[in-house]
Design a protein around this nucleic acid. Structure first.
Lengths: 237, 237
DNA sequence: TTGGATACCAATTTCATTTTGGTTTATATT
DNA sequence: AATATAAACCAAAATGAAATTGGTATCCAA
């Protein structure tokens, strides 16, 4: 510690300026990460405690940000990337999910009617056919989900698709522990079949208003059925 | 392999039915994962190659899906859900963000017109006043963002709010390196002021259609201005 | 009382190992 | 000769132990 001989008596302030100089001349990696505290304190010839005080100052100024286990970085702390599905699901419920779907999905269908490619529509038709052939609810739901997602894909908007996926992930997480009694497979006259087909028809015909309205009505029907099921279940118990 | 003595000559078909029976009687884990091929082939008393042929059939039927390193699962292949803001932002662009806002926010405003509480509306009015008083673009944007978020809050739907926040986070991440030249503060006759006020008015009057239309027009104006700015900037360069 | 060294904690990363579906090759078996 | 089986190998993914890192408490000395 030969540096202590010419150390500034105002130790803190001196360390801050020393640190600033170090950061200015050192070219950090692309991530803007600076050396771990243990190394940096040795390099600057100060104790780790004193270095941390200086880092506290820079952090308060917004020059750096730190995180346990990750390190210390230049710039401002990255955005809270909390598109945390599980957190959203924990605060939500099936009713909210349905309302959100009714708000968003009709407009997605409207946009898709404008931008869908023939390939998109072919995939939608495939989903329709497979959902009719399904011989279990699990399969049916798989193709139903895929149909709705294909419609979102058809908007050609990656962000809209991402939001749809988020909504969908929350839906699955929320509906997760649902009641699965009842028949083993959807009846051939299940309401969704015709509704799905008319939606795809509207999209194919570039009927934006029709696609939106049909999707809205479809989801409202689903919501009603869901509500009926819940009521019946609660009466039985 | 003593089983070879009574093995079906139509080996493939027999294995498929055998496999179907196994899957029907065995209650798989919650994830619907079935045993690894090496175990399953031993359990069924068939070679791994033959088992894989049977699995190929089931996969073609959409009964199962497989992935290297993960395993084999019942149902249809899950969607890859990247709810990561930064990942979303990297694949998106300002134009997509605006289109997504135009798709989603009008419907949020419509829903808010139905569910907003007096407290919500009071907060919207506060945002309006503060945005008018703002003496820097940064401040103005802060209140503008908060106004739009308050409208999303007014839907009383945590999931919708979460989706809005995601959209907003992507917007900030995408617009991050934008050109910020131009005047120091919004002009008193900035178009957004009147548009914002009419939106809040519509929400207060429970005018759902009006709220949606006004929000849509507002965002379209913003989109147009943004486009003009980009054009001018590209001409200068 | 203050500052520095040390030890410890929990979040995170890193790295080697294992597991898994997919593919190739050699070896029987008919 | 043709086919099927077993074994080996590959790359993607999961797993788990160990190391790293910012944060905190403790002890010691000046």
């Amino acid at each position: 510690m030969d540096m202590l001989t010419d150390a500034d008596p105002h130790a803190e302030k001196g360390t801050v300026t020393q640190l600033r100089a170090f950061l200015a001349q050192s070219d950090l990696s692309e991530e803007g990460r600076l050396p771990p505290e243990r190394e940096l304190s040795a390099a600057l010839g100060v104790s780790r405690a004193e270095l941390r005080k200086a880092l506290d100052v820079l952090e308060a100024e917004g020059q750096i940000w730190r995180h346990v286990g990750k390190g210390t970085f230049m710039g401002s702390r990255p955005l809270d990337t909390f598109a945390d599905i599980t957190a959203l699901a924990r605060r939500s419920n099936p009713a909210e999910v349905m309302r959100a779907r009714i708000v968003i999905e009709p407009e997605i269908a409207r946009a898709a009617a404008f931008t869908a490619t023939p390939a998109d529509i072919a995939e939608m038709r495939l989903c329709l056919a497979r959902s009719r052939q399904a011989d279990s609810w699990r399969q049916y739901e798989g193709w139903d989900t895929r149909l709705h997602r294909t419609i979102a894909e058809a908007t050609q908007n990656g962000l809209l698709l991402g939001l749809f996926d988020t909504l969908n992930a929350v839906r699955r997480a929320v509906t997760w522990g649902r009641l699965r009694a009842l028949p083993v497979k959807p009846a051939p006259d299940h309401h969704s079949f015709k509704e799905h087909e008319s939606i795809v028809d509207a999209i194919e015909h570039r009927d934006m208003a029709g696609a939106a309205n049909l999707m809205r009505n479809h989801l409202r029907t689903v919501e009603r059925k869901l509500l009926d099921k819940q009521l019946r279940a609660s009466e039985e118990s």
